[in-house]
Design a binder for these strands. Sequence first.
DNA 1: AAACATCGCAACCGCTCCAAC
DNA 2: CGTTGGAGCGGTTGCGATGTT
Length: 361
Amino acid sequence: MGRYSCCVKQKLRKGLWSPEEDEKLCNYITKFGVGSWSSVPKLAGLQRCGKSCRLRWINYLRPDLKRGMFSHDEEDRIISLHQVLGNRWAQIAAQLPGRTDNEIKNFWNSSLKKKLIKQGIDPNTHKPLSENQVKDEENCTNNTSMLQIPSAGLMDQPFHLTNSRSFNSEVNGQLAEASKDEFVSKQVFDLLFIHEFQANVNPNPNPSGYNSEILAQYQQNMRPNDHRQSEFDGNPTYGFCSETSITKLEHGQITETDFASSSTSRMSSSNSSNVCRYQNTAEIQMTRMLENSDELSWEVENKIGSLFQYPYISIKNEELKSSPRQEREFYGHSSGDFMNNPLSSLTEELNGATLDVFQQI
DNA sequence: AAACATCGCAACCGCTCCAAC
DNA sequence: CGTTGGAGCGGTTGCGATGTT
């Protein structure tokens, strides 16, 4: 049985918004703020559903929205963030003040994807494409969101996120789809790489997969923070996990460190103490990983590089506004770039370290 | 100039999550 | 503990603008 949209059900207006409707919505929200979206249309005198009003406000009418083309900086950040987050547009948008998830999603699908393919990079995996793949990618627009997570444990069994609700495990070149329940639940994926990474460097690896105790704790303790808290605050968010708690392994126990509430997630201005505090937090994370690791692949290293790059890029943005050349040199994924990172000592430490992780899931 | 193809963006749809009851 | 409704997310669609033949 199909579902009817709320607009159809209530015989409400659909389609493009007229300037008059925009004005009504703007006036209402400016006056009364956003309360319950479902009551907004009625109170604002609009023949629309609340959902439609919400979308119109968020994607178009919000005063803090940036307009116009994406800058080169934004482009780079989207690509880098997508490499880590996949199609989690809302989380990507949270790192780009003034941009909406919809806008970024459209920009990705219409422009960035093609750009990467032209550069010989698979937009899904962010890995180099073979010649045949380049042709295939150019010829067919495969909409499947296949995020290969190139993290350590997935070296032998790469994972593909086919969509946000299921994922595949590739074993010996064969894709075997499994429901999220057969694995560890979507939440674990939502913990993002660092969580995944840490879950797998637990000191008591279970050869059959994730340590069930740790996983249970993950599922119990960890969930992405409500993004609503940061969506409209107007402050740029910094730090990789601004909307996601991050965990530490302490004596086999998982404790929660809320990035959003730490100094790392938000900076009102450039401030060196923020750098230090971030670094401290990162070091806690990384040290714990190192304590439980022996070796890291280049993939893992790159991943970590990407992971810790964002906050620093943000800081650099503030610091290097007057020096576009330096700024430009910093972006990207080369090791040289990362060497300039205050966190570079961490990556140096990772070289030659061993990681006994991600045997399988 | 007209017809057709392609592109980009705004908006919609269907789903999940979660809080309230 | 099940149900309900609101909010939000990601995928998809529709349509106007632009380019090409």
